[in-house]
């Protein structure tokens, strides 16, 4: 069984072997260092001309990648910490996503890869989950595989199928996790949803209908093996849905399975307010009006900077306990 990191590394190797148009740019991506989280380890040795280490110029390298994309290449940009994506926002929003939209016959297959999320004590500017800032941008997709997915397969799918910009989000704490693809403890189904990406569907029970539908993505998956086991012992039946495509979101599939439970919790690590969860919730209300037993409960991190100190950081970030309490709260509605 491979880890999330190994799976992603292997996926990049396969992609580089199969498609000579793929180029990777990023800071500190060359061997022996191999990138801040080692995702590109070995890649520059194997493909020296196609792995470019760049100056510390996030906006600049994004623009360079867009130039490559406009001229037939498939560039992958590694942004060392997702927090720095704000520096790339103008190039992504005002350039990369505009070209395929406003120009005729232009594609811009740009892939922005970036680790997001907290839990490692990196502090306020290196721990955020800023993907919500890029939600709802026309011609931009956000893909965030969990450790119930295969990130290496997904990035190959993006490189071969997508013709326009994609932000690919990797949660820092998932890198070392073992992929949960054949877990016997939790029956897992990977279903290709209406976005063309896969939604991981987990159930912590064998028979009956679920009490609660838990929706999350990416790094939220790290809580699930333990949490779902714990809730199963409390006889609380959960169906967990983890779409890897977070924008566009497979709302039809989510609504279909959420309707079984009638009680919904949506969890994400970004800070409270104007979240992915709130966007999903509004669409689910529309889809499931009259079928819900209680209001949809959203769980996020607190609305403040993410502290460095271990206990303070833990207090601010979304936790397994937050999700568990939200689940108990929605079941408690009569």
């Amino acid at each position: 069984m491979s880890t999330y990191l190994q799976n992603l590394q292997n996926g990049l190797f396969e992609l580089f072997s199969n498609n000579s148009r793929v180029i990777l740019l990023g800071e500190d991506v060359l061997d022996p260092y191999g990138g801040a989280f080692k995702v590109t380890a070995g890649l520059s040795t194997q493909f020296p001309n196609r792995v470019l280490t760049t100056p510390i110029s996030e906006a600049g390298i994004t623009g360079v990648a867009i130039g490559l994309a406009l001229r037939g290449y498939i560039p992958i940009v590694e942004i060392m910490f997702g927090d720095f994506l704000t520096l790339c926002a103008d190039q992504i929003i005002n350039h990369a996503t505009k070209f395929p939209n406003m120009y005729r016959d232009v594609t811009c297959p740009l892939i922005m890869r970036s680790p997001m999320g907290g839990g490692r004590g990196y502090g306020p500017t290196h721990s955020q989950s800023l993907e919500k800032m890029f939600l709802g941008i026309p011609e931009l997709k956000l893909i965030a595989p969990s450790h119930y997915h295969q990130p290496g397969q997904t990035i190959q799918h993006i490189a071969t199928q997508e013709i326009n910009p994609v932000i690919f989000i990797e949660h820092k704490l998932l890198y070392r996790e073992t992929l949960q693809l054949n877990s016997e403890a939790l029956p897992l189904i990977l279903k290709t949803d209406e976005t063309g990406y896969q939604t991981a569907i987990l159930r912590n029970y064998d028979v009956g209908i679920p009490d609660v539908c838990l929706i999350g993505y990416g790094g939220i998956s790290r809580f699930l093996p333990e949490l779902l086991k714990k809730l199963a012992a409390e006889e609380i039946r959960i169906i967990a849905l983890l779409p890897e495509s977070i924008d566009p979101v497979p709302i039809e599939m989510l609504a279909h399975f959420a309707a079984e439970a009638g009680r919904i919790v949506i969890a994400e690590e970004s800070t409270e307010g104007f979240t992915w969860a709130s966007g999903i919730a509004s669409q689910l209300y529309e889809n499931l009006w009259g079928k819900l037993h209680c209001p949809i409960k959203m769980v996020t991190s607190a609305r403040c900077a993410i502290p460095t100190a271990i206990q303070q950081e833990a207090d601010v970030l979304i936790s397994s306990l937050n999700i568990e309490n939200a689940i108990l709260e929605v079941i408690s509605w009569a």
């Binding site: 906006a59 600049g60 390298i61 994004t62 623009g63 360079v64 990648a65 867009i66 130039g67 490559l68 994309a69 406009l70 001229r71 037939g72 290449y73 560039p75 103008d90 190039q91 005002n94 350039h95």
Partner: peptide
Amino acid sequence: GILGGMVPIATGIALS
């Protein structure tokens, strides 16, 4: 229409 914004893109095109 973004001032200066096309320069990195032109740089990427030059790379291509």
